[in-house]
């Protein structure tokens, strides 16, 4: 199951954007991830699996946000500490308090903190970079709006803009499409495609099996262990999906998966 992406990147002569080896994570005594070894190739990769499969855990453990029992995560062949400025993060929208006293621009500016002195005001250049990121997700007009007064989809786009403002080479995104309206979903997809076209990589936790083939070039099927990984065409098979979801996938979803697989 060790991935094709690693080999492809090795052939290209550069280490993969993300390489995970033997990652095991447990909450208390309950293991969530078992010895996951996987590497993400350049481009757009979706992480798919049932609820509780450890998708978000994989991302958080790779970023060192939760402790791992064992295993390592390398970014571009280096430790996270060495290449922090090349790694961007988009957390789940529900992970913060949206009633926080901040404007959309304030939130996006937080992505530029590593480039600033840690005291004093946000310099004009950084503010402009943050504005540009907001414009890229279609929120230029709402820069000064309090974040609590944005719709759910707009809040998600603020998070996306903040990630863009990090100007990273690899983005780890935790459910960027969770509970957003159709317009926001299309806006996010457009941004992901622009990132891929610009040579950036994205690893995104995704929950909608019917759009995997549309949105991503590569996929990791996860259920505690890495079930299958590779180009969507090869790895996203009905058999692999059934193996990842066990009996939990209902017939209707199966039907849409088959359709997606053929397209």
């Amino acid at each position: 199951m060790s991935a094709d992406g690693g080999e492809a990147a090795a052939r290209a002569g550069s280490p993969p954007p993300l390489e995970i080896r033997g990652l095991t994570v447990a909450y208390g005594e309950r293991p969530v991830l078992w010895d996951v070894t996987w590497s993400a190739p350049p481009g757009l990769t979706g992480i798919v699996g049932p609820n509780g499969a450890g998708k978000s855990t994989l991302i958080k453990a790779a970023l060192g946000l939760i402790p791992a029992l064992s295993g390592t995560a390398r970014f571009f062949g280096r430790s996270l500490e060495e290449v922090r400025n090349r790694v961007g993060y988009l957390p789940q929208r529900a992970s913060v308090d949206w009633d926080f006293p901040a404007t959309a621009l304030d939130v996006v500016c937080m992505a530029r903190y590593p480039r600033m002195r840690w005291w004093g005001r946000v310099p004009r250049a950084e503010r402009e970079a943050a504005r540009a990121a907001l414009a890229e997700v279609g929120l230029a007009d709402l820069a000064e709006r309090q974040i609590g007064r944005l719709s759910g989809g707009q809040q998600q786009r603020v998070f996306l803009a903040r990630a863009l403002a990090q100007d990273a080479d690899l983005y780890l995104m935790d459910e960027p499409f969770a509970a957003v309206d159709a317009a926001t979903e299309q806006a996010i997809v457009a941004v992901l495609r622009r990132l891929a076209a610009a040579g950036r990589s994205v690893v995104a936790v995704h929950h909608d099996l019917s759009t995997v083939a549309d949105y991503f070039a590569h996929v990791l099927l996860l259920n505690g262990r890495a079930i299958a990984a590779g180009p969507v065409r090869d790895a996203f098979t009905p058999e692999a999906i059934a193996a990842a979801y066990g009996g939990r996938l209902n017939l209707l979803e199966h039907a849409s998966v088959h359709a997606a697989g053929r397209s």
């Binding site: 922090r84 790694v87 993060y89 926080f100």
Partner: peptide, 13 residues
């Protein structure tokens, strides 16, 4: 401000 709003994001940075 960064640590109050989104501690995880601050840590990633």
């Amino acid at each position: 401000r960064a640590a109050c709003f989104d501690p995880d994001f601050a840590r990633v940075q």
